[in-house]
Design a protein around this nucleic acid. Structure first.
Lengths: 188, 188
DNA sequence: ATCAGCATGTAAGGCGTTACATGATTCA
DNA sequence: TGAATCATGTAACGCCTTACATGCTGAT
């Protein structure tokens, strides 16, 4: 398996539940984990091909009687082993790139309205995401007894908790910028 | 300027305060914004060279009477304009890659001790980061009246608030996993 | 008949990381 | 003298994104 390509593990994780096509994989990434991980066809299909060559997944053609091209992938024992090893590996990279924070950090030389606007934009993004996460959480709560769902539930509550913290921070930050000490011409 | 290379903006942001060498830039990234943005020499030096060619920064040799090689960079008016445009651009990409959450999401098929361990590893990382951020915040509070420092302060409080939320989530998550509904053999 | 969604893939390019290579200075 | 830090850069590689290219299916 490619050394640092996390998309491989995402694919193995999804295939450990059921056989899927590349298209299905993309959909599941979008709907289930997109708030902390992204995927796209340009990385999924090549990864599937390479993983088939190295024996982590197997193709299962499924033409459904029509001539429609569709490739179902199935995880192999080697694939399962690779997944398990990764899950037990304690080295993790949690890599955050908040362009919003960059703009706030470097916005000190501009009028404060610029930073205020950047906070508002972020606030709106977070509000949207929070709505989606809450719906997702409600749906999960209906089936929380099922195997695996407690793990999905944990990631969703992680998302909700952080979004709510972001929103509280936005309120605090705007207040501080509007009324706080301003030490320079950049008053507003 | 390269279309999507954010390192350019980081460099311009830092140079808008003072002239710096590539080495200085790396140090300031490490000490000031590393919790939400990373940088390394392999991207900084090439970026500086390209930005000099396109007129966003200027070289200011400074040999300090010794023969020691050292290149100070200075932001130009074009560079300042590029920085200001970016700060006012409302399109932002906040790109998160939590490998920890991936492992939790896909850990449902394993024994719960695996997920518990992954949470503990995360918890320890966050605790370490939080300590650093708190020291950073204390230092900033001494000089909060100075221009720009309110912006730095905001990013630090963002970091502290999210870290504290992470830690609370860890406690909650561990409790849920240890005592919660387990719907399968994966009891622990 | 047309459009959205299903389905698979390739190509180009950009970005970033890691490792490598070099050498000066400062302090113990 | 040796180690840590200062200082600049290159090369290789890998990963990911975006755009492109193609064609089928099902619903309106």
């Amino acid at each position: 398996m490619a050394k640092d390509r996390k998309i491989d593990l995402v694919i193995l994780g999804l295939l450990s539940h059921e056989d899927l096509t590349g298209y299905d994989i993309k959909k599941q990434i979008d709907s289930g984990i997109s708030f902390f991980w992204k995927g796209n066809f340009g990385s999924i299909y090549p990864a599937l091909n390479e993983m088939e060559k190295s024996g982590l997944v197997k193709k299962k053609q499924d033409k459904k009687s029509s001539g429609r091209e569709k490739i179902l992938y199935h995880i192999t024992n080697d694939g399962k082993k690779a997944l398990q090893e990764w899950l037990r590996e304690e080295r993790v990279s949690n890599d955050l790139k908040y362009e919003t924070l960059l703009k706030i950090y470097f916005g000190g030389g501009e009028d404060r309205s610029v930073t205020l606007r950047n906070i508002e934009v972020f606030e709106n993004q977070v509000k949207e995401e929070l709505q989606i996460l809450k719906i997702y959480k409600e749906n999960l709560e209906k089936v929380i007894e099922e195997k695996d769902h407690i793990n999905y539930y944990l990631t969703v509550t992680f998302g909700i908790d952080t979004c709510e913290t972001y929103l509280k921070w936005c309120v605090k930050a705007k207040k501080l910028l509007r009324s706080g000490s301003d030490g320079s011409k950049n008053k507003r």
